[in-house]
Amino acid sequence: MTYEEFCKQGSFSLEDLLAFAYGNLVDDRPDGFDARLPAPPFLMLDRILTITSEGRQGRIVAEQDIRLDAWYFQCHMPGDPVQPGCLCVDAIWQLLGFYCVWRGALGAGRALGCKNVSFNGQIRPYNRCVRYEVDIRRFSHLKDSGASIVIGDAKVFVDNELITEITQAQTGVFSGIVYPDYPKHSRNSVGGMIRS
């Protein structure tokens, strides 16, 4: 698809998300279009049902199918398999980063934090579907640095039961931070403070 089509599309399939993760979704990527989603098995989404914006706000609804043989059930915890709650938080960061790029941000995404996380349930091997509902509180493009920041509140449901609430989750998209020549020792091979 073209970059213009990408920025106007209101839903994304698993095929779309995988293509985005591998950098193949947009044929005419503008310079600086470096963002990616994690590839499986760390991709925590199977589809984005809706993605919308209105001014500086918006909404994303996405789903993940639960698989009996998911990698995290094999190691967390033996004899008591449960999806780690932090993966629900990471799914929200993944969605927020995707939202930034969908809104026109250029660069690569990084999770920036969240205010509160409340776990009230769990995801087990025989659950069927996780739904992520994210209300975008504010999207900002910082003209001086070229960075973009998004803040959202999220609810996570498993088989239609609310199990997690996350407030003020934050993700940013920054230019000049990708490390495409891994494992070569180069400019971005060492972490630390993000300076864009």
Rank of each mutant, 00 (worst) to 15 (best):
M77Y: 15
K143E: 14
R131L: 05
G104T: 09
L95P: 06
D90P: 09
P84V: 08
G121L: 07
R56C: 05
M77L: 15
G104Y: 06
G58S: 06
A62K: 09
I136Q: 00
Y132M: 10
I149F: 13
V117S: 02
Y126Q: 15
D65L: 14
L142H: 13
G109V: 04
L112N: 06
R103T: 04
F139H: 11
R110W: 01
I136K: 00
W71Q: 04
N116W: 06
F139G: 00
L37K: 09
A39M: 12
I51D: 01
S145H: 09
V134H: 01
I92A: 05
Q83F: 02
L112A: 14
D153G: 04
W71E: 09
Y72E: 11
Q83N: 08
F119Q: 06
L96P: 01
K155C: 09
R124T: 15
W102L: 12
A91C: 08
W71C: 05
R128L: 12
P81I: 03
E63F: 03
H141R: 08
G152L: 03
D144K: 15
L45N: 04
Q122W: 02
Y126C: 13
Q74H: 11
R131V: 12
F119D: 03
L43Q: 11
L87V: 03
V134I: 15
R47M: 10
L112F: 06
R47I: 06
